[in-house]
Simulated scan of single mutants.
Amino acid sequence: MCKGLSSLPSSCLEKAKEIRVKLSHFAETHHKQKIQDGKMLQDLETLLNNKSGLQAFHVFLRSEFSEENLEFWLACEDYRVSPLNLQKTKAGSIYSQFINPDAPQEVNLDAETREALLTVMDSPCADTFNKAQQRIYALMAKDSFPRFLRSHHCMEAIKAF
């Protein structure tokens, strides 16, 4: 023991050890949380349910001029929880914004899914866009999301957690 510490009362030494243990426990917990947050970004569903992650993903997609898929997915999420009296209006808006071949933010859907949507637009229900939303989710998971994971936007999002 160094001379400086030997002159301190044992109660101070015990208190210092106690603080050191607490600090090491805090550092370990913080490190585990950082690892969990990093792993979180390996799952698109979890990312979409995290406000910071969603924002970083949206900024990334905007930088690639491809945010229409995410915006469609978000519009479908909003539609799903909308009151029945608003669903027809919102369905028309989603169709004209994302599905219609002349849509300003047309998403990449196969002809079969597009035709199925067209046939139900007169009487939309809560699950009208489910199949289309699943297809767009799959596209994001296979294409945009892996690129996001390799981007500086992802690294910045991990630092922010």
Rank of each mutant, 00 (worst) to 15 (best):
L86A: 14
P124I: 02
I35S: 09
S144K: 05
L86I: 06
D143R: 03
Q42L: 08
K142M: 08
R20A: 15
S7V: 13
N130P: 01
H30R: 13
P104D: 00
T128K: 02
L149V: 11
D43W: 04
E156Q: 13
L109A: 04
Q36T: 07
N100V: 03
G53K: 02
K51D: 15
R62D: 09
A116R: 10
H152W: 04
K32P: 04
R135E: 07
A16S: 08
S151Y: 03
E18T: 05
Y79H: 02
I35F: 05
E14H: 13
S82D: 10
E64M: 07
F129Q: 02
A75T: 05
K39D: 05
N69D: 09
A27W: 05
L109I: 00
T46E: 15
Q36C: 08
A132T: 01
L8A: 03
C154L: 01
E67M: 04
E45T: 15
A138R: 10
A126C: 08
G38V: 04
F145P: 07
F145T: 05
T89D: 13
M140E: 02
G4C: 10
Q134N: 08
R80H: 07
Y137M: 14
H152Q: 07
L41Q: 09
I158G: 03
Y137A: 07
S52T: 15
E14P: 00
E18L: 03
Y79L: 01
M155G: 14
G92H: 12
C125Q: 14
G53H: 00
E64Q: 12
L13H: 04
Q133R: 08
E71T: 10
R80I: 00
H152E: 11
K15Y: 12
Q133K: 05
L48E: 04
N108I: 06
H25M: 10
S82Y: 09
A56G: 05
S11H: 10
L23K: 09
A157K: 03
G92D: 12
G53E: 05
A91G: 05
F57P: 04
R147Q: 12
F65H: 11
A126D: 09
